[in-house]
Amino acid sequence: MAWLRRNVVVILGLLVLGYILLPNIVVMVFSFNKPTGRYNYEWNHFSLDAWLDPCGSPGMCEALGLSIWVAVVASLVSTVIGTMAAFALGRYRFRGRASTNLLVFLPMATPEVVMGSSLLTLFVAMGMQSGQTTILIAHILFTLSFVVTTVKARVASLDPALEQAAADLYATPSQAFWKVTFPLVAPGIGAGALLAFALSFDDYIVTNFNAGATTVTFPMYVWGAAQRGTPVQINVIGTVMFLGAVGIVGIAQAIGARKRKAD
């Protein structure tokens, strides 16, 4: 009983973690399924077919390629301009700073369906053709605020004495920035970029409003598949992305741990 009292938070935590991971496990298991009909919802029997032919579902890999391209470009642009803004907001005091902070916060407080539809009305009003450009514009917009917020927190937590110490040790302002400030803010910039990539890669709602009829991103492809029949290949992609993310972070952790040990 005392043991239970002490460990109740551990047990609950593990159960909740199981809840978070359960769908991923199901996705993984069903990537080895050979479904009987068009929908991959019922277990039939084990098969490697989908893994051996990941692009076997027509149009899926094109959609995946487009999503990766959009996510790379959008996260790159929003990381650059978001980082610049984060520096301005994190270390300068100027009139209008509070309203700028609010302006950065608002897109995060706007439901995707509102943001998607308002962009659509703008593009319609401007007579702009929906397609890759409009998707990019939208993705840069909704990832931007997350980058600014993430990087700004890092900039604000930086001890101003560090940059002063650099100046005191004969570094010019630009040297102080590149040798001290930037390396210290870099993890925040990396986190912001990763978040932007993930948000962009995963977005369906905003994209669906601004993609037009012929441009199909991976989430749009999955959505379409859910209406017409789900190919096993989407489970393969889902599994690869999940294991890839866990693997990359795991390797980075292991390297970091070894480096710390070596020191």
């Binding site: 978070i20 989407i234 889902g238 599994t239 992305m241």
Partner: peptide, 20 residues
């Protein structure tokens, strides 16, 4: 990492898994 990793599998795919 395990809390964040599901993000990298498209949320539609994961939501469809709840059907199963």
């Amino acid at each position: 990492v395990l809390v964040v990793a599901p993000f990298f599998t498209n949320f539609l795919i994961r939501t469809l898994a709840w059907l199963i």
